[in-house]
Simulated assay, not measured.
Amino acid sequence: MIFDAEIAYNELYAHFGNLVRRNEPLARHCTFGVGGPADVWVSVDKPEDLVGLVTLCAERRWPLLITGNGTNVLYADAGVRGVVARVAINAYTLEERDAETAFLTVGAGISWPRIINELAPKGWGGLEFGPGIPGTLGGGVVSNAGVHGHDLGHVLEWVDIVDARQCEERAVAPTVVRYSHDELELSYRHSRFRAQRRVQFDGEGNPIAAPTN
């Protein structure tokens, strides 16, 4: 199926309004400041909107690339064909369990420096080993980010993920799956998600599925 960027833009704009842009320069969205245009760019700031976007792209058979803050990402000058969606889910809740412990639930799009700076004045720590890590906590989970002998695996209890693997073959809705700490296969700079990354691009910026072997 040929991707019609104008049709996709109009339909996504009806759902997401000004969060959708046409021919958005990807150089604006990565730390290296390089990259051509995305046919359609959308910023997603709610979990339910992310599920809805993936569902819509699966139904329409639109190419979809999910990204975060663009830390350590190099986009080609050709840009990316299809829809590029930034996960900007950055809300969080803090549940105090007792005087010394609390349970923090954060969106995948929140930046590491921000959450540290907002929790420290309240007297809470646990992530202070990573203020120099520029990416998002969601991205940090993928690589089990850390420094100085500490990593997210030391404080992470579970993650909810949008599993869209079945959408590659047929137009079905993705599923939201919760993985406990023990199911994440965490080790040095590794998680089960890093092992499963499969996105590649051809010379014109079209996302393609990488071989599974």
Rank of each mutant, 00 (worst) to 15 (best):
D98P: 14
G36I: 00
A120Q: 15
T105L: 13
I115F: 05
V84C: 08
D151E: 04
A91D: 10
V159M: 05
E6P: 12
E168V: 05
H29L: 01
E59I: 03
I161L: 11
Q196Y: 08
T67K: 10
L12C: 10
K46C: 07
T175V: 15
D163W: 07
D151P: 12
T175H: 10
V142S: 09
N23Q: 14
A164S: 15
L12W: 02
S191T: 06
E169C: 06
A102I: 06
N90H: 09
E95D: 10
V155R: 08
N69F: 08
I66Q: 04
T71C: 14
N69Q: 13
G36S: 11
N90A: 13
W112K: 10
V142C: 05
I133G: 03
F201N: 06
R97I: 15
S180N: 14
R81V: 13
L186R: 08
T71G: 12
G205E: 03
E183S: 12
N72A: 02
R170L: 05
L137K: 01
D45R: 11
V172L: 04
I2C: 09
E169K: 13
A91Y: 09
E11P: 15
F16P: 10
G79I: 00
W112D: 13
P37S: 08
N144P: 13
K122D: 11
L56N: 07
N144R: 09
V51Y: 02
C30A: 04
D4L: 07
V172I: 09
G107D: 03
H181S: 05
E169R: 14
T212G: 06
N69G: 09
L19V: 04
G138P: 00
K122E: 11
A76K: 08
N144T: 06
E95R: 06
L50R: 09
T105M: 08
P25I: 00
G17E: 12
S143K: 13
G125Q: 15
S180R: 08
E100C: 15
A108C: 05
H154K: 12
R86Q: 10
V80T: 03
C57E: 03
V141L: 04
G107L: 05
V40W: 07
L19E: 14
G153F: 00
H29M: 02
A8Y: 08
F193P: 15
T67F: 13
V162M: 10
L65S: 15
A27V: 05
W41N: 08
R81S: 13
L65I: 07
F193A: 03
A210G: 14
D49V: 07
V106N: 07
R165G: 10
V159R: 06
F32H: 15
D160P: 01
R22Y: 13
L53Q: 05
D160N: 15
F129W: 09
P47H: 11
V87P: 00
R192M: 10
A102L: 03
L156G: 00
G35D: 06
V162P: 03
P174C: 09
G109N: 07
L50Q: 06
P37Q: 08
N213A: 14
A108K: 11
S191D: 02
A8K: 00
P207L: 06
G125L: 02
A195I: 10
L119T: 12
I7R: 12
